[in-house]
């Protein structure tokens, strides 16, 4: 029956799909930047030696890593307004959820990155009179970050694929836009195949980028 596949509706649906894609990319970008910053802070908290600070950070990371993102998206969407009394749009809610959720994953990557820098470097920085935070900011983090760029990017394309889960709260991402169009025009299969291709193209490009960076960083080392 799929000899009757009809892709002629795709041009009609393109404006909606681009709008959805724009949101998926926006969500990915904001959650990546926010997640890396927050994740780095969490990683530093875990490595700082502060007992309670470290435990709190570990607890946060463990919980976030145990709950399916889909569940997390639903929780935040229902709970934030219930707790604050302030209604929140689905786009904002998705951005907050993704940032907080991804922070846990980025923090594990950053922690590994920081630990990959020889301990002697911290000592050297302290010896020349830097504070702990200065040594982190000027010596350790820039290197840790550079070493971890490929892994951070890999996590980011997992994040990009996961944006497809925001359909659960009615935010219109790439997948949701395609689904709506498929429903409107009665061409669900065609729309799915088309967006699969878009996802594949973007993720494949990203994975090639990761590969290229891995090679470059191998040279630096």
């Amino acid at each position: 029956m799929f000899s009757t596949l009809d892709f002629s509706v795709i041009p009609l649906a393109l404006p909606a799909i681009f709008k959805g894609l724009a949101f998926s990319l926006e969500l990915t970008l904001i959650a990546m930047i926010g997640g890396v910053i927050l994740g780095t802070l969490l990683a530093l908290a875990r490595l700082s030696g502060g007992k309670w600070l470290g435990r709190a950070a570990k607890f946060y990371v463990d919980i976030m890593r145990s709950i399916p993102l889909l569940m997390m998206i639903l929780w935040f969407f229902f709970l934030i307004p219930l707790l604050t009394g302030q209604p929140i749009g689905q786009e904002k809610s998705a951005i907050i959820t993704f940032t907080l959720f991804q922070a846990a994953f980025y923090s594990e990557i950053m922690r590994a990155g920081i630990q990959s820098i020889p301990r002697g470097q911290v000592n050297a920085a302290l010896a020349i009179g830097m504070t702990y935070w200065q040594s982190m900011g000027h010596v350790i983090l820039p290197q840790a970050f550079r070493n971890m760029v490929p892994v951070l990017l890999t996590q980011t394309f997992v994040l990009f694929q996961d944006t497809s889960l925001v359909y659960a709260i009615g935010a219109t991402d790439l997948l949701k836009a395609a689904e709506n169009a498929g429903m409107l025009y009665g061409r669900t299969v065609e729309m799915y195949l088309f967006v699969s291709l878009i996802y594949f193209a973007i993720c494949f490009a990203l994975s090639m980028l990761v590969k290229y960076m891995n090679k470059r960083i191998a040279i630096i080392r």
């Binding site: 649906a13 404006p15 909606a16 709008k19 219109t172 709506n180 409107l184």
Partner: peptide, 8 residues
Amino acid sequence: LSYLDANQ
């Protein structure tokens, strides 16, 4: 009853 048109 309630749906999106081509321009969302």
